[in-house]
Design a protein around this nucleic acid. Sequence first.
DNA 1: AGGCCGGATAGAAACGTTTTACTAACCTCG
DNA 2: CGAGGTTAGTAAAACGTTTCTATCCGGCCT
Lengths: 333, 333
Amino acid sequence: MALVSIKDVAAHAGVSPGTVSNVLNRPGKVAPATRERVEAAISELGFVRHGSASTLRAGHSRTIGLSVIDIGNPFFTEVAAGVEDVASELGYAVILGNSAGSQDKEDRNLRVLAEHRVRGVLITPSGEDPGRLDRLRERGISVVLVDHPAHRPDQCAVAVDDVAGGRAAVTHLLAKGARSVAYVTGPLTIRQCVERREGAKGAMRAAGLDPDDLKVAEAATMTARAGEKAAADLIAGGLPEAVFCANDLLALGVLRALLRAGVRVPEDVALMGYDDIDFAAASTVSLSSMRQPTYQLGRIATELLLDECDNPDTHAHQHIMFQPELIARESTQ
Amino acid sequence: MALVSIKDVAAHAGVSPGTVSNVLNRPGKVAPATRERVEAAISELGFVRHGSASTLRAGHSRTIGLSVIDIGNPFFTEVAAGVEDVASELGYAVILGNSAGSQDKEDRNLRVLAEHRVRGVLITPSGEDPGRLDRLRERGISVVLVDHPAHRPDQCAVAVDDVAGGRAAVTHLLAKGARSVAYVTGPLTIRQCVERREGAKGAMRAAGLDPDDLKVAEAATMTARAGEKAAADLIAGGLPEAVFCANDLLALGVLRALLRAGVRVPEDVALMGYDDIDFAAASTVSLSSMRQPTYQLGRIATELLLDECDNPDTHAHQHIMFQPELIARESTQ
DNA sequence: AGGCCGGATAGAAACGTTTTACTAACCTCG
DNA sequence: CGAGGTTAGTAAAACGTTTCTATCCGGCCT
């Protein structure tokens, strides 16, 4: 169990521990001959640097945190893939936190990240409490918001315009002839849900309809199962001509419930999702959706975060806002 | 930036640092009055323990590693959700590694985990080289295999019987009347792909067919896109009466390509996937599949790992093998 | 030739915990 | 009433790095 330390390497190579450290961190500062000797010793002894000791002394780690709302949602999975790719390219480890929509769980996760002295945190916040994130910043942990606009100017954020997305979706539904529209949403504590609703209302207003006629059905979670339940309520309460869902998971659930109830899509009810996850195109009735640059969201957020960490002087905070893209498929033919 | 340390807390509470440490780690060992004083100081000063210092001194961390083959695959996502839930319940952080099917990337990830002195590693190995895992064990890092049988007796593993799964799937296809079967697989470096193929051949043998008549199409990755490509080859080479895919992602791709080519499923070709991801039931033609206890796989593997870490004396290594379950849907009607 | 300079390395301190003696005070009981 | 045991807390060492300062040495300049 007595693992080989930098001292053992030093002894084996006939140099001081400081020199080994230099080989590891500033190879330029050490004479080629010595460097080779040390490198030989390292591989001979199978030395692996003790990350905690390094973090402790250096004051910062090569680890970042990623906190998402639902790791089961392909949207976040794809974000995570982008994050993981960049982090791994730059030698950073990623600690994953799944808030499952609960502020408590998110707080617990952030605490764990703080204890680990992560270099920075990528987060899609579940609520609207910037205070907790400010506390991280006070501790020297950079924060980049993912799929969320910036809370403050001196902060990076990568987002997609959800109001525009909601507007485009419902405009599309109305253009297909629908006069009554329902909005199946996740918890209205989630910003994305609220903004997509505002966009939807805007579209109705623009079409000369009363935005308050948008029938809103709030599901407890943004999952297919919750979508099925919401659709049942919708069916019971009288069906609209079109349904806009806050994400594709909900939409797939709604679709399943509608078809089971003998409702034809899109003939009886037009249906739109959001996110354009891979499975939207493959579903029973292929699903119209709003596409977002998901993988890019993860990549860019991570690049911004690591730039902020590694080049604090030259780093310029950025607020990036992508525009979503409408993908029309069978469900709104 | 000078964060508050255990010494500051000690000074503020009028005790020694050792006592603060005891409050943190063995609250029973310190008198209630003192404990309260220390706890007050902790929250007053906003103290957060420095995980690296703790890891360094204590010799072990409260972090585990999770290395999967493809975080974009809902199968692994669900495993990850199970892992994350258990870890978070027990106060462990999870470092995520995505090997993307590459041994190199997996090696890099394992190295990062070793540097972090993680307590243990959960891994679905991409190849068949137990040596690298043994090296982790030599460094005192427990390893639990996920969705993979044990390499050795003194090791925990949680797996699902892939041979049985392949056999059940093809038996089902043959029972539906198919005489010719194709197997669309991912890289044959992946054990699951090989074993499901063996099961498939076994089913053919049992039905009095020549197992070598199983037409095997190997896709480069286990994604829907690769499945589409494989299906194109299949169509070009003459269609079998049934197609068995090594996972649902491939199957969804095959389905898409077949339908686009005007092939009816299941009338012209019966189709089976594997994993029973949520989207299998929602696809254009709902997909028959082999269900695995995915979330449980993650939960149980993590419980075994943390038991091995926290109770090394009483821990009994276990090799758990689940049986998959056939879910018949439209695609094999 | 003596002083100086700069490059290469050694040596030691420090990072924030945990843990191992160790002490002091108090109790118990013969 | 004192020996022995228990409890509560202290002080100091240790974990494995990084980093700062100091030292050494060879060569160059005047």
